[in-house]
Simulated scan of single mutants.
Amino acid sequence: MNMNYQVEIYTMSMVWNPVSDQVLLMNRPNHKGFPGYIAPGGKVEFPESIVDGAIREVREETGLWARQIKYKGLDEFCDPEQGLRYMVFNYLITSYEGELLTDPPEGELVWVPLRQALELPMQDWFAERFPRFFNSGTFERSVVWEKSSGRTLQETFKTYSD
């Protein structure tokens, strides 16, 4: 087994207003990568904690400060050819303060009714992950794939109750 591998740690945070039942999504342009509607998130900086990285990314991308944040689960992707393990820690934010940025760096910010969000154009992987933010408990998904062929070699998915 190759012991030389790289780990990249990211976060994704769904900002949800439970009173209006709306989620805050970014409409990312093509040149930013992952075009379409997506939740805020990004790379965790060393040595910050993962939850602090999630809070920082939401602040940088939206202008909002997370006040209540709940861990929802892990999406992990491993590519043995590249020696890469890519981990995304997912959070649900239900309380926040601040004003939305007028010129957000990652794309237009839009409050969308929760029941209509999946009708928007978005990456398939994000559409698959979206409901998991609102399911009870937490989840863990691990995928081993080959970038060169685009094939999934192995997948594990587990859910855990609260």
Rank of each mutant, 00 (worst) to 15 (best):
I9C: 06
I9R: 13
I9W: 01
Y10N: 15
Y10K: 10
T11Y: 01
M14N: 01
V15M: 09
P18D: 11
V19G: 01
S20G: 00
D21K: 07
D21L: 05
L24T: 02
L25S: 08
P29K: 07
N30R: 11
N30I: 12
H31K: 07
G36Y: 02
G36Q: 07
I38F: 13
A39F: 14
G42R: 07
V44A: 12
V44W: 04
F46Q: 12
E48H: 14
S49F: 06
E60M: 09
E60W: 00
L64H: 05
W65Q: 15
Y71V: 08
G73F: 03
G73W: 01
D75K: 03
E76H: 04
P80Q: 06
P80F: 00
E81S: 13
E81H: 08
L84R: 11
R85A: 12
R85K: 14
Y86W: 13
M87T: 08
M87E: 15
Y91H: 12
T94L: 09
E99P: 10
E99K: 15
L101F: 12
T102G: 11
T102H: 13
T102L: 14
P105C: 07
G107W: 02
L109K: 05
V112L: 02
P113G: 07
Q116K: 03
A117H: 01
A117L: 02
E119P: 00
W125R: 15
W125V: 14
A127N: 03
R132A: 07
G137D: 11
T138K: 10
F139T: 03
S142K: 13
K147T: 12
S148M: 13
G150D: 10
R151M: 08
R151H: 13
F157T: 09
F157V: 08
K158G: 01
S161R: 04
D162S: 10
